[in-house]
Design a protein around this nucleic acid. Sequence first.
DNA 1: TACATGACTCCGA
DNA 2: ATCGGAGCCATGT
Length: 100
Amino acid sequence: MAIRAQILEQIYTIVAQIPPGRVTTYGRIAQMTEGATARLVGTAMRQLPTGHDLPWYRVIGASRRIADHGGAQRQHEQLRAEGVVFDASGRVPMHLMWPE
DNA sequence: TACATGACTCCGA
DNA sequence: ATCGGAGCCATGT
């Protein structure tokens, strides 16, 4: 069964609202939707067609580190490019989390 | 239909 | 701080 259209729409809407220079997690996004799980948010990001306009790179793991996937390096660059910093252990400081 | 996989998390050892 | 296992559920074979 495919990800329900309504949930997918909510995921996209939320990701689109993450402010530049800030990040959020798969789990947080899942909680803001009705029925999605962190895993599904990851699946949704993985399925994004090339050329879309969503700031997918602003979505990281609950550990505040970039998840392990094929575009991880690119994601890191994109974030650095807009001012997101990483500590010695590769984690994004808590104050850059969104919301709050 | 059945089993494996994955851009996840949580929790306990 | 790490690590393994379990729960998760859409997808891929």
